[in-house]
Design a binder for these strands. Structure first.
Lengths: 368, 368
DNA sequence: ATAAAAACTTTGATCGTTCAAATTCTTGGT
DNA sequence: ACCAAGAATTTGAACGATCAAAGTTTTTAT
């Protein structure tokens, strides 16, 4: 195959100079219409394509976003970041940008990788996930003037309003509040909550959504709410183990709201063993598991999250990294999630946390 | 911040020439040891980093793999490609390569994107997923000498042995065979199979695994097997709908092997409504859903798949794209999956396919 | 008609690296 | 000592694009 055509070749065919070809590509408005058409025809004729590397070398722009992909985000809710990645890739593509992945171990490792990618002009800006208060990564990025946006609030009052730290997040409290209010609307009163142990930025936020709905709509006070909630580490088994005693204390709840689908599934299991297989339960994240078992859940609307991230990074229209400082109010986006109500495919789950792992138990026929 | 240091700066500090610095970086063996050390010290002192774009422009190598990420691979089994992506990114990183994502609509759109990325020297090689017989993408890639490897067999005898078409795949038949044999070992005899409608390369392959185990280990013949299997489109509901009549025809099966976790979950649902809630069922893909509900499944070992893909592309040691033709036997890898046996968290699933989607049914207490 | 302004186009230099070929420095055999 | 062969290093020229500034043509105002 012959050498790929360059601007020079196009210029020759169109009888113009290199620069004019470049202008047609990058600032068409400065070129006279007739000339532009001639150049465009030559581009088509030769099948010319811009060489991205040469362009990058000169402009120091790569039209590429970097995002870290962890080795394996297993578990039920692990797919959230993957879904975000899909949405981000798609939205970035619409703006003519691409997404480059990298891995790293630990915050320092990530900083090293970012630094490398940045110096090599490989990546223009970074998207970080799961940031926390005084995250060394964000501090480094700000100090080194590397454009970035995070999916997730920094969870510190000071960082949170820092206009240099662009962030997008899902309004977890709004999600659990919507779930709780929906349950209240359908007649529920004794609504339990299963959360993550405090402190957890995301977890505490979601719990507050349930609390505020219970308080505002039902007039419950702190004392009333006190025993209605319980916490557990993420996981189906942990959820089940935490909910069982809660159900012993509150034998006739109306519903359960959970901080995650994993815990919700655990709650379903526990409810089933307690003979409450029809108990309405709402999870969070709207994972495939929730869809599969017919669990109501809160959908994070990751398309909106991705769109928000790009908007902060690139401006609402353009496709160039915005270095300009945004005003505090403009430096972040809080996406309101959507409640997805499913009619449960009712699974009278039977909790066998103590079951053996031995295979071959196909003769069993158990029922609570 | 001052200008980033270049080879020139390093050269000055180390009192050598540009090229020597370049050699230290790219072919250390041609540089005298003492000189090399001097240069290396200068590199560290200045914090020099190679500019990837300049290097790419000159060498036309990018140390980057491209892979298409579809807008949204929803559903239970959608996560397979995401897990593969995680593994690929990690393995690529170990070889100093990065992964770039792009989206495209349709095969022609993907070809356009590949062509663009390739011409721009953005990407050295591509990883394709879900290829089929006479896939226009692979034909184009071969015709245009673009290095690539596919995750998934081409499913055509001729392509399959084409040494120009590198591929890695999971031996689905081995997976279902192992599942079936395991069930046989535990005493099962009447083992049903739920597959995808034919023709489906992957689906037919997996069905053959069940068939061969039934034939070889139990001596069943075609006629015996004929009514023991059923097909359904991918989906929990579809699986449930297909398995119910099967269970009516075979009221006392010993186990069910399924082509996917979605169908397996559907089968669980159907089995539960038929009063067979303890029936051993094996799915395929080992998705989070399977883990969550305690469903046995076949794990694809995506780390091995990713490793195999990179080995074919880059050779077993190096990190450069191998243009060399491999011999037919060396041009592909078939990964043997692993059977994951779980003690079911027994879910006497209750099939309510006809349930309304109306919310507010929290008062229901149903049981089959 | 003419100068000034605006619109458009071209020319050289440059981004940071590696290639290819030329040059200098070592080493060893006679 | 000397020369050839090899090892080590350097030099000039790309790679393909854009920037900055200078040149040309066209339009507008007087």
């Amino acid at each position: 195959m012959a050498q790929l055509p360059t601007v020079e070749d196009v210029a020759r065919v169109a009888s113009v100079s290199r620069q004019t070809v470049s202008n047609v590509l990058n600032s068409p408005h400065v070129v006279k219409a007739t000339t532009r058409e001639r150049v465009e025809a030559a581009i088509v004729e030769l099948g010319y394509r811009q060489n991205a590397s040469a362009r990058r070398l000169r402009t120091r722009k790569s039209a590429t976003l970097g995002i870290r992909l962890d080795p394996m985000a297993d578990g039920i809710s692990g797919s959230i970041l993957d879904r975000f990645l899909h949405a981000l890739t798609e939205q970035a593509d619409e703006r003519g940008m691409r997404v480059m992945l990298f891995t790293a171990s630990g915050p320092q490792g990530e900083i090293d990788q970012i630094s490398r990618l940045r110096d090599g002009a490989d990546v223009d800006a970074f998207v970080l996930t799961s940031t926390f208060h005084r995250d060394p990564r964000t501090e480094w990025l700000i100090a080194n003037d590397v454009p970035f946006v995070t999916f997730g609030r920094p969870w510190g009052i000071d960082d949170m309003n820092d206009p240099q730290h662009l962030w997008v997040d899902v309004d977890g409290a709004a999600g659990t509040r919507a779930a709780t209010e929906h349950l209240i609307d359908t007649g529920a009163r004794r609504i339990l909550y299963v959360g993550w142990p405090s402190p957890s930025g995301t977890g505490d936020d979601r719990r507050r959504g349930w609390e505020s709905a219970m308080r505002d709509r039902l007039g419950w006070n702190d004392a009333d709410l006190d025993g209605l909630h319980v916490t557990a580490e993420e996981g189906v088994v942990q959820g089940s183990a935490a909910v069982s005693p809660l159900l012993a204390a509150f034998p006739a709840p109306d519903a359960i709201v959970c901080v995650s689908d994993s815990l919700a599934l655990g709650a379903m299991t526990a409810a089933a063993s307690a003979g409450l297989s029809g108990l309405p339960i709402v999870g969070f994240d709207n994972t495939p598991v929730a869809a599969a078992v017919g669990l109501s859940s809160v959908e994070q609307c990751l398309g909106d999250v991705a769109a928000g991230a790009l908007e902060l990074l690139l401006g609402s229209t353009g496709n160039d990294i915005v270095g300009a400082d945004l005003s505090p109010g403009e430096a972040h986006r809080l996406i309101t999630p959507e409640l997805v109500i499913r009619s449960p495919r009712h699974l009278p789950l039977f909790d066998r946390a103590a079951a053996t792992n031995a295979p071959g138990n196909h003769e069993e026929r158990e029922r609570p």
